[in-house]
Write a protein that binds this DNA or RNA. Structure first.
Lengths: 162, 162
DNA sequence: TTTGAAAGTGTTATAATATAACAGGATTAA
DNA sequence: TTAATCCTGTTATATTATAACACTTTCAAA
C-alpha cells in the first residue's frame, strides 16, 4: 500500500487501522505506553494526508474531552515524534503521521502549497552531494530536515484544467 | 574566501564589509532600497556565523534606537530573505546571513548543535534521488528546505580532547 | 520642482506556536 | 504493597510572528 509515499488515492480507513495496529504492536514490543491521548493524537494525524498544527489537534481533543491544554498535545506529539510515529514538518510548524511507523529512518517531505497534502519519502542524508560535502569539511550529520514545497500531481491537473 | 561554506576561520571584518558592499551594489542595480534598518539587520547577521532569532536582532536594534517593535525587524527580514541576502533556518526559527548574496540559489545548511555555527552550501534539489523521486510521482519542486544537524569539525576536536 | 503614488517605518494590539513548573493519578517493577 | 517512574491536568508564561492603521520618506511623472 505504501501510505503517503506518493499522492495517490487509497483505502483510507484501512490504512489508518493498519498504522494503528503497527503502533500498538511496536509499543507492546518496546514496552512503551501508547496511552489514550497518544493513540488518539496519532489517529487524528493518520486521518489526514497533510500536516496539521498542534492547536488543531488540541481543538479536536478538547471536543472529545480528552485534555484541553497545550501541554497535553505537545507531550503526546513529543512521544509520537521521538518514536517516529509522527514527524514534524518544520516549514509548516505542523505535524504529520509517519508512513513507516516505528522504524528509525530519515524522512523527506513533499508539500503541496495548493492543497497542503504532504508525501513522505525516505532519504539517506549521508549519501549524495550533500553527504559528500559534509564529509569533506568534516561535519558529522546526525539528522536532516528535507522539505520540498511545490505542487502535487493532482493540483497540477486541476490547474491545467482551468 | 567563500564565507560560510565551511566552518573555517577567516578575516571576519573584511568578510562583513565585502558582503555589505555586494548588497549595496545589488540593491542599487535592482532599484531596491537597502534602508538603514535593513542594512543594519544584515550587518548584525553578518557579524555572526550562526543563526539568530528575530527578537535577538530586535534587542540590538532597540539598544541602538533603530526601531523597537517586532514588525520592524520582521519587515527587514522579509526584505532580506526575499532577496536572498538572508535565509531562514526553519529548524531553529532563526535567521542567518547568506554566503552568496543577491543570487538566486538553493541553500542547504549544516548546523552544529554544540556551538550553533551554521555553514551554508549550495544544492540542486531537483538533482539526485530526491529530485528523481519527485519527477517519478509527478511532484513539481519549487523550493526546498535542507538542514542537517550535527557536530562541526571544531566541536568534534574539542569533544575528543576531553 | 511639485505632487501624487508607492514604499517604508512606528506603533498598538494580538495571533500562533511552545514550554516551565508543579500537583496529582496511573502503571510498573521490586 | 509500596516505592519509583511515567503520565496527565492545570496555571502561567515564553517565544515567534502578523494584522491593521497612522505617518513619513522616496521616487518618478508631470
Amino acid at each position: 500500500m505504501s501510505r503517503g509515499i506518493s499522492f495517490e488515492k487509497h483505502d483510507h480507513a484501512s490504512c489508518v487501522n493498519e498504522a494503528l495496529d503497527v503502533a500498538d504492536q511496536f509499543c507492546k514490543a518496546h514496552k512503551l505506553q501508547l496511552t489514550k491521548v497518544r493513540r488518539r493524537v496519532l489517529e487524528i494525524l493518520l486521518g489526514q494526508h497533510k500536516a496539521i498544527g498542534a492547536y488543531d489537534i488540541l481543538a479536536q481533543l478538547k471536543a472529545e474531552g480528552l485534555g484541553s491544554q497545550p501541554p497535553v498535545v505537545y507531550r503526546a506529539l513529543d512521544f509520537l515524534v521521538s518514536h517516529n510515529f509522527v514527524h514534524k514538518v518544520e516549514k509548516l510548524n505542523a505535524y504529520v503521521a509517519c508512513s513507516h511507523s516505528g522504524q528509525h529512518h530519515s524522512p523527506a517531505f513533499m508539500i503541496c502549497r495548493m492543497c497542503d497534502a504532504v508525501a513522505e519519502m525516505q532519504t539517506s542524508p549521508k549519501a549524495g552531494v550533500f553527504g559528500a560535502t559534509a564529509r569533506e569539511i568534516g561535519f558529522e550529520i546526525e539528522n536532516a530536515v528535507i522539505e520540498a514545497e511545490g505542487i502535487c500531481p493532482s493540483c497540477q491537473k486541476d490547474d491545467a484544467a482551468q
